[in-house]
Design a protein around this nucleic acid. Sequence first.
RNA 1: GGGCCCGUAGCUCAAUGGUUAGAGCUGACCGCUCAUAACGGUUAGGUUGCAGGUUCGAGUCCUGCCGGGCCUACCA
Length: 504
Amino acid sequence: MSQPYYLSTAISYPNGAPHIGHAYEAIAADVMARFRRSQGRDVFFLTGTDEHGLKMAQAAREKGIEPAELAHEMSQMFKDMCDNLDITYDRFIRTTDPDHVKAAQTIWKKMEDKGDLYLGRYEGWYSVRDEAFYDESELTEGEGGAKLSPQGTPVEWTVEESWFFRLSNYGEKLLDHIAANPAFIQPDSRRNEVVRFIEGGLKDLSVSRTSFDWGVPVPGSPDHVMYVWLDALTNYITGVGYPEGGDKWERYWPADAHLVGKDIVRFHAVYWPAFLMSADVELPKQVYGHGHLLGEGGIKMSKSLGNVVDPREMLGRYGVDALRYFLMREVPFGQDGSVSEEALVTRVNAELANSFGNLAQRTLSMIHKNCDAIIPEAGKASEDRKLLDDVMAACDEKLPAAFDRWAFSTGIEAWLSAVHACNAYVDAMAPWGLKKTDPARMAEVLGTLAAAIAPLARAIAPVSPHGSAAILDQLAKGEEGNPIEKPTPAFPRLELPAKEEKCA
RNA sequence: GGGCCCGUAGCUCAAUGGUUAGAGCUGACCGCUCAUAACGGUUAGGUUGCAGGUUCGAGUCCUGCCGGGCCUACCA
């Protein structure tokens, strides 16, 4: 049996339509999942939606529907997004799934048995919109003397009975674990932040709410629902069979990686492992905090600036392969990076369509026309060997080494150099000239190119699966001396829609 | 306030303290005509944010400043 690989994305809070950030994380995780499968790993890939909490309850009330109904509707939008992006998840988990509710209650009981939960009182300034308590000193004064949170949202003085988790007991244990497992939090810059946060001292964490009931009921305290993060994080173990156990659980837990945005690294690298330690469950091997996508000029995307990129629009306009390739190629993973439609079109046309797609097209086309559509054997001349060696080094070593450490753009860059080498080889060999002077050599050259294109298509398949499959299909038709069909471009050129007039 | 990171070509980014700071995109020029008007080659472009310091030698290390970002605490 092959080596298991368990990967998760964060589950999305579906209080609005999916945005490009959701698409980005799903794509990155899917690229990793497909890459691992291509290495022969037995992958389990989990994604889903986090549906409980006050905001969902309120949104439902405003619409005059049940929270469960709203959650269902909104969750479907996220599932559709994943399906449209060809995300190959093994399970789309919802925190409203019955097995998840049971898992969340079970981990709660384990933590309670450990003596890590106690009943207390929480009073303070609470912002409904932020779902957070603030200290008096953090507040600012708004219009008419109204008190506002640091985010500018209204706050109310709230007194709540609440269960607390003894997070304060876990600081040392967490630091020890982090020190002993350098890969636990990646990239390093994120780890440093987490370490510093823990060193600053951990306070006990409020883990239940009584002010609303849209959540997982606390066992034995019917007035309380579990804190959304405790509920949400538990999805990672529900997804593989906690608490029942069984084959999946034995096989996939602990997870190889939780892929999350840098904004929620703390929940995954501090709270979550502390919960797991308390419940005597092994910790995941890695939490990777990726960067955020920014608008043009590195400006944060926001509705008011009108620079928000809608993934569904991009998808409709340019297709899955292009969007996936662009996001993985353009931004060094782990860092923030800016994206724009123009950059997408430029990048995809130059690299996917012109460099690689056209390489496949011109090669297959020449084989189709000049070799009776039969793919010739690769040549044995030193230039031929050199080219294939370079291609194999890129596809079998450089790209995988980069993808192993989530460095997608670096891996793709190595792949692209090999593509460029192929185009230079075509130019140097000029098979269209050999056609008249040395047809046998022409065949060798075209065979060499065909032999190069196959691994190149396989290597980029996790990123751009459709076009890669199209090329591999065309090549597969030519196996065992069968003729290939007249080739069609696998990665079409894109066009930027005509610019709207800006003058009023 | 404390801490961390970044600043390199018009743009996006590389460069264990060690030759003349590199690559892609964009631009200019040349070549090719198999191919999705695609490909290849040449070339231009730099006071490495600023000022000092350490060193035989600094983009890299140290100090200060300017600018940008992130984490975090607090005062009024």
